[in-house]
Design a protein around this nucleic acid. Structure first.
Lengths: 215, 215
DNA sequence: GTCTATATATGGATAGAC
DNA sequence: GTCTATCCATATATAGAC
C-alpha cells in the first residue's frame, strides 16, 4: 500500500523521512506497549502498528531494548522540562506534608503521563534475572533524590522509621508497583484521591492525627 | 548416565518413581527460578537441573505455567500450616503497632522462605498484558485479608488515610515489590530491621512519635 | 514412566533490490 | 532509507522405542 511520504510541510529529504520513520516507530511503540506491554510485544508488532517494515526498524534501533532506551530518553527530557518549573533545592523536608505531597504528586503524574514507557521500563526490570540484583539496583537509583531528602530531614532532627536508603526504597516500591498495577482508565479525580491517600499514609501512617469521621 | 532410581527406602514401584520425578522437577524448578527467575527459564533448564528428560516433564505438567501453579499450591499448603499456629480472627486492629508488625512479619517471612515461588509468581503477574488488569486484580486478591482488617479498624472509629481497598493495595504493593527486589543474600537480622522499619513507616508514617536520636 | 529424536512454530536479524 | 524475502536460532511440544 502507498504510504504518505510527506504528511507534513517539511521537505521530503532523505534525512527528514528518516526522522519521520523513527518518530513513527516510537509513537507506535507507545501505543502497543500500553496494551500488550513490553515483554509480549514483538518487533513486528511495532513495525506493523507504525506501518513500516521490519528491515526499516533495524536502521534506527539495534533491538527492542534500544528502542526502549530511546523512549526513556524522550521521557526524561520531557520530565526534566516539567520539573524545571518547580524549584528543587536539596533542603526539602519530607516530614512536611505539603512538600511530601508535592513529591508524590510529581512522581505519580510522570508515571501517568508516560504510562507506556514506565510500564515497559518496569516490565524490563522485572524480567531480568533475579540473581542479578537489577531490581534492587534500579530501586535505589530511582529513589536517590528521595533518599537525599530523607537524609536532610534526619539531619534536621526528625527521626525516621529506618535507614533513609531503606525508607526511600520502600516508598519507591509502593509508588512504582502501584503505578504499574493501577488501570490506565482511572480518572484525574481518582489520581488526586490516590495521591492524597498515599501522602497521608506515608506522612502520619495508619494512626496519624486525623479527625474521626462524623458518623 | 545412570540415575538413581530408588534413592529412598521406598519401593521402586512405577507410581513411586513418578512421584519422585515430579518432586525432582519441582525441587529443580525452585533452584533454577531463584537464580534465573521464571520468565527466562526454559523447560529444558528445569529438566536438566532435575536430571530428567524433556519428554518426562510433560508427563507431569502441561506447561511451565502449570508447573508454577503446582509450586504455588505447595507453598499455600505450607503457609496455611504455618499460619494455623497463630489465631487469625477478623477483629484484628492494624492501628495497633504489635498487631501490624505481626502481619508484616508473617508476610515477609513467607516471601523469604518461599522466595523462588513468590519471585516466579511476581514475574508471571508482571509479564501479563498491562491492558488485562491482571496486576491490579492480583494486588486486590492478595490484600483481601488486609483490607478486611482495615475495614474493621475503621469501623472501630480509627480514621484511615483512604479507602481500605486502596490502602491495602498500597501496602501490598510496597511489600510485594520490596520482597521481590531485596537480594536473597540478606541476613535474618536484616529481615528484622526491614520489618521494623516498614512497621514504623506504616504505623506512624514519617512524622510519627519517635524519639530524636541523642546526637 | 522415561527416554531420544524430531516436528513445528515463532521471532530476531540480515541480504540485496529499489 | 525502505522494502521484500529469507536465513537462522531458539524453545515448545510430540512420537515412538524401551
Amino acid at each position: 500500500m502507498a504510504r504518505a511520504t510527506a504528511t507534513t510541510a517539511k521537505a521530503n529529504t532523505r534525512k527528514a523521512q528518516a526522522a519521520e520513520t523513527r518518530a513513527a516507530l516510537l509513537a507506535a511503540a507507545r501505543r502497543v506497549f500500553s496494551e500488550r506491554g513490553y515483554l509480549n510485544t514483538k518487533i513486528t508488532d511495532v513495525t506493523a502498528a507504525a506501518g513500516r517494515s521490519t528491515g526499516s526498524f533495524y536502521e534506527h534501533f539495534a533491538d527492542k531494548e534500544q528502542l526502549l532506551q530511546a523512549m526513556i530518553a524522550e521521557m526524561e527530557a520531557s520530565a526534566d522540562a516539567h520539573l524545571a518549573q518547580h524549584d528543587h533545592p536539596n533542603d526539602h523536608d519530607l516530614t512536611d506534608r505539603a512538600q511530601l505531597r508535592e513529591h508524590i504528586a510529581i512522581a505519580w503524574t510522570v508515571m501517568r503521563e508516560h504510562r507506556p514507557v514506565t510500564v515497559a521500563q518496569f516490565q524490563s526490570m522485572i524480567a531480568a534475572d533475579p540473581g542479578s540484583g537489577r531490581a534492587w539496583q534500579s530501586l535505589l537509583e530511582q529513589t536517590t533524590t528521595l533518599r537525599e531528602h530523607l537524609e536532610y530531614s534526619r539531619a534536621q532532627g526528625h527521626p525516621l522509621p529506618g535507614e533513609p536508603q531503606l525508607i526511600a526504597a520502600a516508598i519507591g516500591a509502593m509508588l512504582g508497583m502501584l503505578g504499574y498495577a493501577t488501570p490506565a482508565t482511572v480518572q484525574p479525580k481518582d489520581d488526586d484521591r490516590i495521591v492524597d491517600a498515599l501522602t497521608d499514609l506515608l506522612h502520619s501512617g495508619l494512626t496519624g492525627p486525623r479527625q474521626t469521621s462524623p458518623q
